[in-house]
Each structure stands twice: as C-alpha cells, then as structure tokens.
C-alpha cells in the first residue's frame, strides 16, 4: 500500500474580488511506504499547498488525497500522520514538556503513555535541559527540534515535513538529516519539501519536482540524474595552438593551470573526440574524470524548461 496517493489533486484559491489562482494543478503522486520522498520546487510552486491538503488544513478544489488508503479529509488518516510545518509555531507560554503533553492529549494518549513519549522524544531531540523553559525564548533551531518532537508524538508511520531544514545552521541541518534517516530506519515514510537540494540528494530515495503547481518529474534521484549527460573534465599537456583552439570551441569551460590545460566537455562522446584530437596532435592526456551530475543542475534545467510555458491563472 502507498503511504501517500493523490489523484488529480487541484487547489484553486479564490476570494471575493480576488483573481482566482491555481496553486496546484491535477497532482497525481504516489509515495511508497518506508521511503524518503523529497518534494522540490521554487517558492510558490505549490509544495506547501500540497502538504496542507495532505494534512487537511485545506480543502481541495477537486481530486483526492489518501494516506495509507484512507481519505486525507478523515480524522482517522490524521492519526497516521506527523506534520512539521515550515517555521513551526507553538504556544509561547508553554514549556517543551507541556507542549508535548498537550499534543499527546490531542492524540488521545493516556497519562503514562504521554510520559513515556516525553522520555523517548526528549532523549532523541535533546530537550531535557530546556524541558521547563517557556518556548518564547527559544531559537529557531530549538523550535525546529520541538516541532520534530511534536510530529513524532504518537509514533505515526508517516512524517510530512515542510522545509524542515530552512533557516538552520549546518549543525541544525545535520541534526534534522540524521533524524530523518533514523526515522526511515524505524520503517517510517518521510515526505518532505526542501530548498536545500544538497540535503535532498544526500538522503532521498525519490524526488518529485513541482513547477507552477504541476508535477514535471518524479523518480529515483540516480535515475533522474542518469538520464542526463554527465560532464567530463579533460586535463591535457603539450597541445598545439590549433588543437587548443578547436578544443576551446567544443568545451564548455577552459582554464590553464601551470603546465596543463583543463577542458570541461558536455558529454562522454565529446570527450572521446577530444582525446583523439589531443593524441593525433602530439599532446598528452594527463587526467580524465567525469563530473557527476548534481540534483541542483537537474532542478535548474527542469525549472528553465517548464517556465518557458506561460503561467495558467484561472479565468
């Protein structure tokens, strides 16, 4: 069974005197149980709208969403879900201990179970030292840890995290990354949106790319990247001027480092041609190494490809 399944999910925002805006456009998406799914897109692409629809904070204009086969509009589906909003806000007058207790009550947990959850989560998220301080005085990183703890109250099998790493310092990002991986080890499914593509590349099994409310790509990170031509860096020495001129025309980048020259070529085929050219011209190939395609480059290409199409506001 899929942890998340959406079918033609659409959200149009409209209001009195306001132009209707299509934020999400017929999104059909499946997230398998036990995987880490990265949901990518620029600001305003519809990521948060999707997440709010999954968490029943918004009502879809059309289409449906299911969590473990249950309609996301039902209360039962929310029992299976832990949600961390972007920049989570909690009652400032409460302490972390009181906050987790409150959410435990909302999940219908008994007193001893709530205590057990506090012991487990305060240990996991290092909350013990700040257990009795009011949230009002906390930094962003501390609030994010409390947000993560709240999402884990009741041990839900699915975590939906909206930009969990945004605004955090490298240590904070690493903490969240490790927590996500730990949750996967516990067989949880994690669906998260992020701008930090390096983190997504590091931990996600699959990614989906949302451009202007439409899912343009979805698949395993290595499959998506593998479909694109890798760059190759060719380091040569002792080439003649005419060979250098030809190679510079073919290369995407060229630089001279002491006695060697570096050419960055756009494909393996181009690299093969370049090698033949160097060798036939009496030059020497010093080094040859592929530059692995990065998710960020792929993401930027996808954005550029789809943003050429005019945006479809709703009449």
């Amino acid at each position: 069974m899929n942890a998340i399944e959406t079918s033609q999910l659409t959200k149009i925002y409209s209001g009195l005197g306001k132009k209707a805006t299509r934020s999400l456009d017929h999104l059909s998406l499946s997230v398998q149980e036990g995987e880490i799914f990265g949901f990518l897109g620029r600001n305003g692409a519809g990521k948060t709208t999707t997440i709010k629809l999954l968490c029943s904070l918004l009502k879809p204009t059309s289409g449906e969403a299911f969590l473990f086969g249950q309609n996301a509009r039902t209360r039962e589906s929310r029992r299976l879900l832990g949600y961390l909003p972007e920049q989570p806000y909690f009652y400032e007058f409460l302490t972390p201990r009181e906050t987790l207790d409150f959410y435990g009550k909302l999940r219908g947990l008994g007193s001893s179970e709530r205590t057990r959850q506090w012991e487990r989560l305060s240990e996991l998220l290092d909350l013990k030292d700040i257990a009795h301080q009011r949230i009002k005085s906390f930094s962003k990183g501390m609030r994010q840890r409390i947000g993560f703890a709240v999402a884990l109250v009741g041990d839900p099998p699915l975590l939906i995290l909206d930009e969990p790493m945004s605004g955090l310092d490298p240590v904070g990002r690493r903490t969240i990354r490790e927590l996500i991986l730990r949750c996967r080890d516990e067989k949880k499914t994690i669906f998260f949106s992020s701008h930090v593509l390096a983190d997504v590349e590091l931990i996600c099994d699959r990614v989906g790319i949302l451009v202007r409310g439409q899912l343009t790509q979805c698949g395993r990170v290595d499959t998506l990247l593998g479909g694109h031509v890798d760059q190759v860096e060719l380091v040569v020495r002792g080439i003649r001027a005419e060979t250098q001129a030809t190679l510079r025309e073919q290369a995407e980048q060229h630089r001279i480092l002491e006695d060697v020259e570096v050419f960055v070529l756009g494909s393996r085929a181009a690299a093969n041609d370049a090698i033949r050219l160097v060798q036939s011209g009496g030059g020497e190939v010093v080094e040859l190494h592929p530059i692995k395609a990065r998710l960020e480059d792929y993401f930027m290409r996808e954005q550029a490809r789809h943003e050429e199409v005019p945006r479809g506001d709703v009449a």
Partner: peptide
C-alpha cells in the same frame, strides 16, 4: 495568524 493552528488541526481531532 500565529499559525499555531497548523499543528493542532493536523491532529486526529474534529
């Protein structure tokens, strides 16, 4: 306004 509702309404309650 303070968005404290997000984490509450996403809990299993009516």
């Amino acid at each position: 306004d303070k968005r404290t509702l997000y984490t509450i309404i996403s809990q299993p309650l009516h």
